[in-house]
Amino acid sequence: LLYTPRDIARGRAAPPLQEMDLNVPDPLPDGALLHYAIQGEAGPLSLEVVTADGRVMQRWASPDAAAGGGGPGAGRGGGLSTDPGFHRVVWRLRDQGSGNAKVPPGSYTARLTWDGGEAERPFQVLPDPLNPTITQADYEAQYRITGEVAATAAEIRALLRRIGAARDEAIEIVAAARAADRDVGLLPELLQQMEADVAPLEARLDPPDRPDVPVSEVPATGAGLVSDYGTLVGYLNSGGGYGAGGAEGAPTAGGLARRADLDAAWAEVRDALVPALEQAIERFNDEASRLELEGIGGGS
């Protein structure tokens, strides 16, 4: 049994900062409350919040469900509970697939799915009653731009993972060849050259920890673009207030200017780093092929 959620208003209570359910007394819940009940044994369950056009904003699933994951307020261990009884899940009005951007006011549906059945219950996300001057276009701009900035941050993290994987694989190839008494040729030098070409640019994205170096001797660097973008997402996605960052609604001119600065810096690093990485991998793999060894990414 899936109950119809109460309508939920965008906004915040202070302190702490949180979304408001206007129909529930203090302490205010941090988002929309989704309730369901189970009688007897239940098989795999999933609970979704979807938009009017069918886009999934968040999904929770029981541990035995085929896909998905837990979320705030889900059952034990983060999964959707299938125990008999009454259960509550909290949706924090975020789009799980768009960097947890705050969703704009509009019509949403809670959808509970189980083996052989499905139930849907509609509800509304309402504008912030404490900020009546914020328009629907403002909310939609906040959602769209937050999602775009979060996507850029995800792109940077993906590139960092690619660099780390290539580095680790190259080290492993050299170590395995030496362990097998194989000729490593120029591979160690090419690995060092890869590090020399890539590491300085990589550090602009995510400066490495240097626990072995005294703080006074660590070169001064910024937090790195991946951190800067994360901070900007928090600023754009907040509801204002102490420690929260930007104002509710459309991004401010300062927020947009900060995004433009970060995008320019990211484009500069990306346009230098991606070719440097690809060329370093190509040189390493050419030498590995000459030595009849497997290369980075399985190349030979």
Rank of each mutant, 00 (worst) to 15 (best):
L47F: 08
S289D: 14
A110I: 01
E140L: 02
A165T: 12
V213S: 06
R92A: 12
V149F: 06
E41G: 03
G147P: 02
T4D: 06
Q124H: 12
Q136K: 08
I145T: 10
P122W: 00
R121M: 11
V125A: 04
L225F: 12
A264G: 13
G73T: 14
L277N: 11
G297E: 12
A253R: 10
A199V: 15
A244H: 03
V184W: 02
E195G: 11
G254V: 15
D263N: 13
A267T: 13
A280T: 07
P104E: 07
D128C: 01
Q96D: 15
Q279F: 00
R76Y: 14
P105R: 12
P200C: 13
I163T: 08
L256Q: 08
A244G: 03
R10D: 15
R6A: 15
L22A: 10
V89Y: 02
S300A: 13
G298E: 14
F86N: 14
G97T: 13
T221D: 01
P200Y: 03
E202P: 02
V198D: 10
P251S: 03
N100F: 11
A288W: 11
L126T: 11
L201T: 14
A176V: 09
V56I: 08
S238K: 00
I8T: 15
A101K: 01
A52R: 06
P15I: 14
A265T: 12
G299I: 12
D212M: 09
E48Q: 15
L1W: 07
A101L: 02
A220R: 15
G70I: 05
G255K: 05
S216R: 10
V89F: 06
P129N: 05
G43A: 07
G75A: 13
T4K: 07
I145S: 00
D212L: 13
A42H: 06
A52I: 10
E202L: 02
L232W: 05
G54C: 10
A166N: 10
